[in-house]
């Protein structure tokens, strides 16, 4: 979008100039809509699971802002000449089931013929304009919570390499298909300062967005970060997706690793996530309450992974 002029609109609360998860537009004084779109090529072999994951991922940006998704539209790119339509039906059924679980209404969609299969959704949510949770707003002293384990990019690469077993595939599929809905509701109940969802830029990439344009820094303890079983081993074996290297190169100047941090740590902390968890910043007292609630509601691997610091500003430090 660089170089394009975007006309100013006073009702646009969150737009392109911030690094936030979705766009937010004020309709009335007590109602704003959140709009987001995401689609991608298959991350797992099973079409139904791919549909579920794509829907959970598309809904994620609305949950990250504390909103309630209301409607969705399908986006389909399908090679109708070379692929059985039954596959598409399974993908769409997976997406539908996820929307049903999220109590979101499918209102339509659009499909094009494309040699490479892609699926995703555009999602519209609602929120009170005063209750929007941005990725900025964290304050020094805050605890940082991550609600899902990291490593989906690495495990997905291992699946492509034929190195992941059924158990690992099942585990990562269920995590990717899991909605951030409950975690989002709980963070609104407890009250938080900032939130984002961990997706393509990896944990550290999204953490960088939280400190950018803010006079704060973040300290992350790599040993506290929840990680999928097997992903450390895969990282050591060189099953690291290209995205992790790109994420690391892009943010190299902002992230510092303490001496003694093992090589697999940056690989996993920069691993691009599909439908990753929420990264939430709130006071230590509230973080404790929120973490208990998360553990009680199926987010058993949620953990406090670090804290917001006053110095060094605009930097992420990764420590033991």
């Amino acid at each position: 979008m660089r170089g394009l002029e975007i006309p100013h609109d006073p009702n646009l609360i969150v737009g392109f100039d911030s690094l936030d998860d979705a766009g937010v537009y004020r309709l009335t004084d007590d109602l704003a809509i959140i709009q987001t779109v995401d689609f991608f090529t298959p991350v797992v072999d099973n079409p139904y699971d791919f549909g579920r994951i794509a829907a959970a991922n598309a809904l994620g940006d609305v949950y990250a802002m504390g909103g309630k998704p209301v409607t969705a539209m399908n986006l389909v790119c399908f090679p109708s000449r070379s692929m059985d339509l039954a596959i598409l039906r399974d993908i769409l059924r997976g997406g539908m089931d996820k929307l049903h679980e999220a109590e979101v209404t499918l209102v339509g969609g659009h499909s094009v013929d494309d040699p490479e299969l892609k699926y995703g959704l555009s999602v519209t949510g609602v929120i009170h304009p005063c209750k929007i949770v941005l990725n900025s707003g964290a304050v020094p002293g805050d605890s940082l919570i991550l609600t899902k384990p990291l490593g989906t990019g690495i495990i997905n690469t291992a699946i492509k390499a034929g190195m992941a077993d059924e158990k690992a595939i099942g585990m990562v599929t269920e995590q990717m298909a899991a909605l951030n809905r409950r975690a989002s509701q709980l963070m609104q109940e407890v009250g938080v300062h900032a939130c984002t969802d961990v997706t393509g830029f990896g944990l550290l990439g999204h953490a960088c967005e939280m400190v950018q344009n803010n006079s704060i820094g973040i300290e992350i303890s790599y040993s506290a970060v929840p990680i999928f079983a097997g992903s450390i081993e895969f990282a050591r074996m060189g099953v690291v997706p290209g995205g992790a290297f790109r994420n690391k190169a892009f943010r190299a100047a902002m992230v510092e690793f303490a001496a003694g941090v093992p090589q697999w740590a940056p690989d996993i902390l920069f691993d691009p996530q599909t439908s990753g968890g929420l990264l939430i910043s709130t006071s230590p007292e509230k973080a404790k309450v929120l973490l208990e609630k998360l553990h009680y509601t199926d987010h058993r691997e949620a953990a406090i992974i670090g804290e917001i610091v006053a110095e060094p500003k605009g930097k992420i430090s990764v420590v033991e």
Partner: peptide, 11 residues
């Protein structure tokens, strides 16, 4: 070849 194929071939 893009990853993970070089790793698979080397393995």
């Amino acid at each position: 070849f893009s990853c993970p194929i070089p790793v698979v071939k080397t393995t």
